[in-house]
């Protein structure tokens, strides 16, 4: 029977080679960030990575916690593609910021809607698309410009990855995923855009125990699943959230 469940985070990331491109679900705060996979990748030690994520880690909007900033601290990253790469506080620059400014790490900054659509396009087999966002700004540099309905638009290319680290709520053994609240963010689209997608979940259930109508990420997009066994200790109310009962 199809079983994509891995016993450990270390086993799930063991084959990631140097130079891999990795998408990591991430937004403001720890919800939706697969940080056990990130920690395993740090232990595994692959280098010269290209990271695709909303931030470059450690932006400290609310909680201070270890996200993919630890990959920068461990000098595993050579390039980051992000929309919100810098700390909002000048006095608390992130490790990524220091490495970007010193030239150790290359930054490709992308408007958030363009970043998400490039990932979606990558997963959907669309090589490129036009968007009005960024026309007439520095985003235009090096890009093809074309007018549609009187509006200048820029040609943006799809993004794909070797691996995607996604955070979800529940998985079945076939890899179908459901999410919880704003945990969803980039995770479902990143799951579609990588050769190997690894999901970090709160709970794994037997195949058939998720409502097919409620599945957000169909299992064909997910290759490996690892269940969290150690409560990371962030504030959540799994027992009484009305939206958590939907599946």
């Amino acid at each position: 029977m199809l079983n994509k469940v891995f016993e450990s985070f270390d086993a799930a990331v063991a084959d990631i080679p140097d130079g891999a491109t990795i998408m990591i679900g991430n937004f403001a705060g720890p919800g939706g960030t697969p940080f056990y996979l990130i920690q395993a990748l740090r232990r595994q030690g692959a280098r010269n990575l290209t990271i695709v994520a909303n931030t470059a880690g450690g932006i400290g909007l609310t909680l201070d916690y270890d996200d993919h900033r630890i990959l920068f601290q461990n000098k595993q990253v050579k390039k980051v593609i992000a929309s919100f790469p810098f700390s909002t506080s000048a006095s608390k620059p992130t490790e990524a910021e220091k490495q970007i400014l010193s030239g150790e790490v290359e930054l490709e900054i992308v408007p958030q809607g363009t970043l998400s659509e490039r990932i979606r396009a990558g997963g959907a087999g669309i090589p490129a698309f036009y968007t009005p966002t960024g026309a007439g700004t520095i985003m235009e540099q090096g890009k093809e410009r074309r007018i549609f309905d009187g509006r200048p638009c820029l040609l943006e290319h799809a993004l794909k990855a070797d691996y995607a680290f996604v955070r979800a709520y529940k998985a079945d053994r076939a890899g179908n995923l459901v999410y919880r609240g704003t945990q969803r963010q980039f995770n479902p689209i990143m799951a579609t855009a990588a050769k190997t997608t690894i999901a970090e979940v709160d709970e794994t259930v037997e195949t058939g125990h998720l409502d097919p109508e409620a599945i957000v990420t169909p299992g064909i997009f997910v290759n490996r699943i690892v269940q969290i066994t150690q409560d990371p200790g962030f504030r959540r109310h799994l027992e009484n959230s009305f939206w958590a009962k939907r599946e």
Partner: peptide
């Protein structure tokens, strides 16, 4: 609840009729 935050990372209240969706749909 860390799974119920706005774009600034602030905790918000759930509300009847709310919906969740992925980033590409959001944009």
């Amino acid at each position: 609840d860390i799974d119920l935050v706005n774009a600034g990372g602030q905790y918000v209240r759930p509300k009847p009729g709310m919906s969740f969706f992925h980033h590409a749909d959001s944009f």
